[in-house]
Design a protein around this nucleic acid. Structure first.
Lengths: 221, 221
DNA sequence: GTAATAGTGTCTGTGAGACACTATGGT
DNA sequence: ACCATAGTGTCTCACAGACACTATTAC
């Protein structure tokens, strides 16, 4: 019946660093492609994982020591040819994390690479990453998911820059703030970020707000 | 390594009949749930199916004798508990077909059931169908996919009614036609549908037009 | 004061919704 | 003539984009 199907989960963990979207990669510790950088991934453990989401969480935690506040199923890549070992299924997930949290956790266990300038990766990992980036870009036009690329406290300028990096286009400050205000998912804190110039109000995500669906777009791509 | 994982594909084939979205179901021929209506589905055959899309096509064809012009991966449901036999993966697809083509093909091999009034189905098939309907509704707000629910030739009123049934709300005739006109994916034919009243222009989908992505919404839900 | 960023006010063009209107067939 | 549906014209209101303006800090 079941002919030795390879069932894995792969996680595309994206972050924003040096003004670019970057993806977490790892040198593979086993064949095939041993030693080459690739997405963190691994077999589903049927005795341990209740479902594929749990498997993705576990794999990410075990391989990179990272925990992401946002983890969503992306797509399932399944074919006879994607893995040299045989018919293989990758249930792929994508995740978002701010660069500070990411670096403060086990940063010796992975490497970061800009998504716009990737070398050829093992399996169909280039395609998987492209799908994740496309999904993130698309979702950013009508949701607040880019918030997950920022630390707990951030300014509206931070948020706008995040959207701009993700979407790859400049946004109008006034229109952007109008929209964010309408959507009403931020709480102003009592703090401000001081610096060389006028201090900026610091915001955090309003607890228990669903950031995922708006009825209107924030911007075209 | 791989502990007897059950790998299946399930297909949610939707059509429009009696003014309602309906789903193709089949009485199961084997245990578990033998005799109960459920989604057409089956094991991935690794010797035969190059990838999961091919598997979905084959399963649909073999089980129902149907071929759909639109078949898209929906989501992968994978958990220890969804199938009494053990850890199970369902790579689910959804498909669209007009009712005429559907009935003219092997209609003795399946049954149709309105999606808004389903009994409890085996496995997590209710959830899978709900996901498919949600996806179709959402995609219909910014794409021409509902065209696949119509036969080759149709009037603009047919198309509008199709959108209305799928979205579950009335649309304004003038605005709808303006939008469809702008999107420019229909060809007027030389034919008209005659009836009791003024005949209506018949259209077909412009060949080689991508119906799937618009930059603007056709309507809110 | 100046420089630089934070944050706001306002105008305008576009486009969706509403709705009234005209057109054309059958009976 | 009348009815029902096909198909069009136009008004208005909301909103996104553009852009200029004010505010507040360090120096």
């Amino acid at each position: 019946m079941e002919q030795n199907i390879i069932l894995t989960v792969d996680v595309v963990l994206l972050t924003l660093k040096d003004n670019a979207l970057q993806v977490v990669l790892q040198k593979r510790t086993w064949d095939p492609y041993k030693g080459f950088p690739a997405l963190p991934g691994g077999y589903v453990h049927t005795e341990e994982d209740l479902d594929s989401l749990a498997a993705a969480k576990r794999v990410l935690k075990d391989k990179t020591a990272l925990v992401s506040p946002y983890l969503e199923q992306l797509y399932t890549f399944a074919s006879a040819t994607r893995d040299p070992r045989g018919w293989s299924v990758s249930i792929s997930y994508y995740a978002l994390l701010d660069i500070e949290t990411l670096m403060s956790q086990g940063s010796d266990r992975f490497l970061l690479h800009p998504v716009d300038d990737l070398p050829q990766l093992p399996f169909d990992h280039n395609r998987i990453i492209d799908s994740a980036v496309q999904r993130l870009r698309n979702k950013s036009t009508y949701s607040a998911v880019p918030c997950y690329l920022l630390p707990e406290l951030f300014t509206l300028s931070d948020l706008q820059q995040t959207y701009e990096k993700v979407l790859g286009c400049k946004l109008d400050k006034s229109a952007f703030r109008r929209k964010i205000g309408e959507l009403d998912f931020l709480d102003a804190t009592s703090k401000a970020r001081t610096g060389v110039h006028r201090p900026a109000q610091l915001y955090r995500i309003r607890p228990a707000k669903n950031l995922v669906l708006f009825d209107r777009t924030i911007s075209k791509i």
